[in-house]
């Protein structure tokens, strides 16, 4: 499966420009992490990819065919977890998944539902009404419905929100396994999740793509731009973005990114988060 985003722009009816002339090529199998601050245009991009929105400029091609004409075919291959979604509260987890399986047209829904419920660790809640579930459990139901039927293209928008750390690790491993033979697009604020599983990263801000490549490439781009220093040694510096501030017995130790590190800062090996923040701060400057 291949998705080609060609000069896509999206302006909402209220005049808000969400995406500007976006170009991107995605190929399966891959697990792509979509990073960007709030309001960067991530969700808009995802909505365009699931044909919930139609771009105001450019086009999206799925396997070479315009999405506008093939959205019915895309829907058959798609698993989608939006950031903000609802469930039918009066149904049990199994019933809801059964309903979604029917909408997806699965041939053997019972087996698929059983497998998916196991994957999202909801065996004990399979017969529970959705209205009785916690926020994290509802999120897992959302992930389950996306995974139902082994879709060849999966889009997860903030999938690990509301999950505890153990569950987060479970799910990112699940996404990683899933992406072995498919395309998974993962939008998240949690850099750690991306770093752990994504083989490709897209960073987006203000509706523009700032970076596409591997996590290693992103990290490499920040080498020499991450440093640590004691706060007491620091002056008012232009372009210095503090990313961590730790109270210690010797004083406050800061970690920062900058285009040019000040002399009092000691250079450090960048993490993915540092690299991401460096990229965003650079764009902001």
């Amino acid at each position: 499966m291949e998705i080609n985003i060609r000069n896509v722009s999206m302006t909402y009816p209220n005049g808000k420009v969400a995406l500007k002339n976006l170009k991107l090529n995605l190929k399966a199998p891959s697990l792509i992490g979509l990073l960007g601050p709030n309001g960067a245009g991530k969700s808009t991009l995802m909505k365009l990819l699931v044909a919930a929105l139609m771009p105001t400029g450019g086009s999206v091609l799925v396997d070479g065919q315009p999405l506008a004409k093939t959205d019915r075919i895309l829907k058959e291959k798609l698993g989608y977890l939006p950031q903000d979604f609802g469930l039918f509260d009066e149904l049990t987890v199994s019933q809801f998944l059964d309903y979604m399986a029917a909408l997806k047209g699965l041939r053997d829904p019972k087996a698929a539902i059983r497998k998916t419920i196991e994957e999202v660790n909801l065996e004990e809640k399979a017969k529970a009404k959705i209205r009785t579930l916690s926020g994290g459990q509802r999120q897992r139901v959302g992930i389950a419905q996306a995974l139902l039927g082994n879709p060849s293209f999966l889009i997860f928008d903030e999938p690990t929100v509301g999950l505890d750390p153990e569950e987060r690790i479970h799910f990112r491993n699940l996404f990683s396994r899933t992406a072995q033979d498919r395309m998974v697009l993962l939008s998240t604020h949690i850099i750690e999740d991306v770093q752990s599983v994504c083989d490709q990263i897209v960073v987006i801000n203000h509706g523009k793509i700032l970076f596409t490549g591997t996590p290693e490439q992103l990290i490499k781009s920040a080498v020499g731009h991450v440093g640590v220093f004691w706060e007491k040694d620091a002056f008012q510096e232009q372009g210095l973005h503090i990313t961590a501030r730790v109270n210690t017995s010797q004083g406050i130790r800061c970690r920062a990114v900058a285009s040019k590190l000040p002399a009092y800062a000691k250079e450090e090996e960048p993490s993915l988060e540092d690299a991401y923040l460096y990229l965003i701060s650079k764009e902001g400057a």
Partner: peptide, 16 residues
């Protein structure tokens, strides 16, 4: 209801 509760975003991704 499906609009209000936002179940439609899941369903619209699957069925027109």
């Amino acid at each position: 209801r499906s609009n209000r509760s936002r179940v439609n975003v899941l369903m619209d991704a699957v069925v027109s």
